[in-house]
Design a protein around this nucleic acid. Structure first.
Lengths: 216, 216
DNA sequence: TTATTATTTTAGCCTTGTCTAAAAAAATAT
DNA sequence: ATATTTTTTTAGACAAGGCTAAAATAATAA
């Protein structure tokens, strides 16, 4: 597979995960910042290669083969992210771009050795699960901070939005993976919250709360 | 620069290093396993980009800009090789292929962090020097085993041929970087040698001896 | 010094992945 | 139920990087 094909496979994987079914041409185009016509071309190629199921105008879905391939790419991406943060001291908002490149490196041996070197991590620096060698994704029970009630507490285990902007904002709030959080108040009017983290009381918006995953 | 352009730059760097001057079209083609006509095309592109000096039929040479670029690629290649051997337990005959891919990853920060993580190694697993951030190549004084005289001894610090075949042969002889070696006999007829390494006496051919570097 | 051989360059074609513009199909609104 | 809008696909073009075959130049031999 070329880098470009791999990017498409990954995009379809993420999109049909969320939508639980088919990825649309325009959805893929948006994800990859390209044109719908380019997507159609590539989808036809991937269909010939038996990595996607495709019927004109009906959207696209990964085959088993495609799903396994996608999981392998995601596995590589997240293992490299973990490496960058744990071993090379990158911060969690810096790793994505470099991992986008590293995920394409083709060596089974490399990735298994890396996994072992890192001591078989289960989640990446944003709390996203790392698929195993067989493509199985460990499912981590988690809940959005935004659904928690007053008085409840839990541990931060992931983020939904992993843009640099959001992650740097979380750093400012001292929100890091593993931090304990307690909901002091919920404002019914706008769903904003007052929470305690690191012995500090901070006010966060509903949008922020809807992008933080908690294990209760 | 594309991966392909980088491959050409690196090939020219290695070729004009050895030849001390110009790289020929056919030489580059052989190195990259491609056709002379393709090389001519690419050279013209690199010339437009000011990374090589080129006059038709006269061969090609890197500009200062090109040289700096090449050194950066070689630096990345060798640092990754060092990482693979030291941290991921690859053997010295397995690393080249993977490093060929890793050397193209574009992140200044990544490579400086990696260098620091590895504790600033000066040579790669084959004894080849790792250029510094400014492209300066530490020059390591070394001599071919084949020029040593009876009774002389020294330390193995590198290999000239780094093909898997040769490296696996060296493993069999217990020749590794850092090993002490002593020349017991030199056969004038065919320039083969009897040497002591690891308390063992082994016989090696002139060809083998001409591919091992020693620090005396 | 001319003839032959080897090397390098040019010309023209192919594939991959992208694009724009136009056509076709599906979804939505009246 | 038909008209309008949105989405998707097709058609045709282009740049990058490669190839083969032919032409041009340089190197070598007679």
């Amino acid at each position: 597979m070329t880098y470009s094909e791999e990017d498409y496979i990954k995009a379809i994987y993420h999109l049909s995960k969320d939508l639980k079914s088919f990825a649309s041409t325009s959805g893929i185009a948006a994800q990859l910042d390209t044109k719908a016509s380019s997507v159609t071309d590539m989808i036809q190629k991937l269909s010939d290669k038996k990595v996607v199921h495709y019927k004109k105008y009906q959207g696209v879905r990964l085959t088993e083969k495609g799903e396994a391939y996608a999981a392998a790419i995601v596995r590589k991406h997240r293992l490299w992210e973990y490496f960058l943060v744990e071993k090379l001291n990158f911060s969690w908002d810096e790793v994505h771009e470099v991992a986008e490149e590293l995920e394409h490196i083709k060596s089974e041996k490399l990735i298994e050795r890396l996994d072992s070197f890192l001591d078989f991590p289960k989640v990446d620096p944003h709390g996203d699960p790392i698929p195993d060698q067989h493509g199985k994704v460990p499912d981590i029970k988690k809940v959005l901070l935004s659904v928690m009630k007053e008085g409840q507490s839990g541990i931060v285990i992931g983020v939904k939005d992993s843009s640099s902007k959001f992650l740097r904002y979380l750093d400012k709030l001292n929100v890091a993976l593993g931090a304990e959080i307690k909901v002091l108040e919920r404002e019914a009017f706008d769903n904003s919250m007052v929470i305690v983290i690191d012995q500090q009381t901070v006010h966060i918006s509903a949008i922020t709360a809807a992008n933080i995953y908690i294990k209760t």
